[in-house]
């Protein structure tokens, strides 16, 4: 018997993002669709940034996780339209990002507060950071630099 889509979504929610392992690939909003095509499970995945090197690792991790659950045939379909947006990050994902020390994205274009001391006195260091999805900011109260998950 083929597992239902809801169950598969739960399994995928246990697959961590390889670069930010506190959130899952489902939290990140990159799994767009899960559908059976005969005996093959088709998973539509959208890349965050077009050159993100984690994309191929993510596809492999998804395949491995589903294989471990007994699904033999998995087809990953790369879907670029509509383009990924940080609006698709789950609320659970946003909360976990902040706990982890990464300020979650905001439409205002900058972090609401320092993820460590919660001060709202923050300043931008650079619009580009350690991965394509992050910018570098600094707290002017506790003086710690931190990553901001940029809005796209």
């Amino acid at each position: 018997m083929k597992p239902a889509a809801e169950e598969i979504w739960d399994w995928l929610d246990a697959v961590p993002d390889p670069e930010i392992p506190v959130i899952s690939v489902v939290d990140l909003g990159i799994v767009r669709d899960v559908e059976w095509d005969g005996d093959t499970l088709e998973v539509a995945v959208t890349p965050t940034y077009s050159g993100c090197p984690a994309t191929s690792v993510i596809s492999m991790d998804i395949e491995t996780a589903l294989y471990d659950r007994g699904i033999q045939n998995v087809r990953i379909k790369t879907q670029i339209s509509p383009p990924w947006t940080t609006d698709w990050l789950s609320d659970k994902g946003r909360a976990r990002l902040e706990e982890y020390g990464i300020a979650p994205p905001r439409a205002a274009g900058g972090p609401e507060r320092c993820p460590r001391c919660k001060s709202t006195n923050v300043t931008r260091i650079s619009q580009f950071g350690s991965t394509p999805c992050k910018a570098q900011w600094r707290c002017t109260d506790c003086l710690e630099p931190f990553d901001y998950f940029k809005c796209i």
Binding site: G51, G129, P132
Partner: peptide, 13 residues
């Protein structure tokens, strides 16, 4: 870092 990220985006495109 900014240059490397820009290059990465362009190669991805």
């Amino acid at each position: 870092i900014a240059l490397a990220n820009t290059a990465l985006d362009l190669i991805g495109q």
